[in-house]
Amino acid sequence: MHMDIEDVVRELGHLSLGTRLKRIGETLQAQTQEVLAARGFEQPAAWFPLLAALDRLGALSVGELSQAVGVSQPVVTRSLRGLEDDGLVESGTAEEDRRVRRIALSRKGRGLVQRSKDRAWPVIEAAVAEACIGLRGDLLAQLAALEDALAEQPLAERVRRQQA
């Protein structure tokens, strides 16, 4: 016997908005990871905003990178360890202040960003935009519509259909 369990977070409305946004973010990130993997990118999806920021803005300090992507410095520092281990970024000290570490894309990192721009980012953007097409009305209704759209047709499926 299968019982439909009420989605309490959805039903609580504004009271659980933070949890709901986090859940949608996690869904989008997991589905993005799937699309990236299908296109031959094995790096964590969470690294790509950092790579994009370094591509757009050039070498940055950890604090500047944190500001550019809107996540805390400890989160950026953790990701940077992986990015450095993978050889995607390089760091050195700033000319003007030797205490400040500057992070920049390595040659390998620039290549990865270019391949991402060619093979992954446009299709991911199009799939997310398509999932958002039906959003109308108040924020909670929009979140419900987006959650439903991602559940009915994950990003990977949208990408496959768009490519067909």
Results as ranks from 00 to 15, higher is better:
residue 1 M to W: 05
residue 1 M to I: 06
residue 2 H to P: 10
residue 3 M to V: 15
residue 3 M to I: 15
residue 10 R to D: 10
residue 11 E to S: 15
residue 11 E to T: 13
residue 12 L to I: 10
residue 17 L to S: 04
residue 19 T to L: 14
residue 21 L to P: 06
residue 21 L to G: 03
residue 29 Q to R: 14
residue 30 A to R: 14
residue 30 A to P: 01
residue 30 A to S: 10
residue 32 T to K: 02
residue 35 V to G: 05
residue 37 A to Q: 11
residue 39 R to C: 07
residue 39 R to G: 14
residue 40 G to V: 08
residue 41 F to Y: 09
residue 41 F to A: 09
residue 43 Q to A: 08
residue 46 A to E: 11
residue 47 W to C: 04
residue 50 L to Y: 07
residue 51 L to C: 02
residue 51 L to I: 14
residue 55 D to K: 01
residue 59 A to I: 04
residue 60 L to I: 07
residue 61 S to T: 15
residue 62 V to F: 01
residue 62 V to T: 12
residue 65 L to C: 01
residue 66 S to C: 06
residue 71 V to Q: 07
residue 72 S to A: 13
residue 73 Q to F: 00
residue 73 Q to I: 04
residue 75 V to Y: 03
residue 76 V to A: 01
residue 76 V to Y: 00
residue 76 V to N: 02
residue 77 T to C: 08
residue 78 R to H: 11
residue 80 L to W: 02
residue 82 G to P: 03
residue 83 L to W: 01
residue 84 E to F: 06
residue 85 D to S: 08
residue 91 S to D: 12
residue 91 S to M: 02
residue 98 R to M: 00
residue 100 V to L: 05
residue 102 R to D: 02
residue 103 I to E: 00
residue 103 I to P: 01
residue 105 L to F: 04
residue 106 S to P: 03
residue 106 S to K: 04
residue 107 R to T: 11
residue 111 G to Q: 14
residue 111 G to S: 12
residue 112 L to G: 01
residue 114 Q to M: 07
residue 115 R to C: 02
residue 117 K to W: 00
residue 121 W to I: 10
residue 122 P to L: 09
residue 124 I to G: 04
residue 124 I to N: 05
residue 126 A to K: 12
residue 127 A to S: 14
residue 129 A to K: 11
residue 129 A to S: 13
residue 129 A to E: 09
residue 132 C to E: 14
residue 133 I to A: 15
residue 134 G to W: 12
residue 136 R to V: 12
residue 136 R to F: 07
residue 137 G to H: 12
residue 137 G to R: 05
residue 140 L to C: 04
residue 140 L to K: 01
residue 140 L to Y: 01
residue 142 Q to V: 09
residue 142 Q to T: 10
residue 146 L to P: 05
residue 146 L to V: 13
residue 147 E to K: 09
residue 147 E to A: 15
residue 148 D to P: 00
residue 148 D to A: 15
residue 148 D to Y: 13
residue 150 L to N: 06
residue 151 A to H: 10
residue 158 R to C: 05
residue 161 R to M: 12
residue 161 R to V: 11
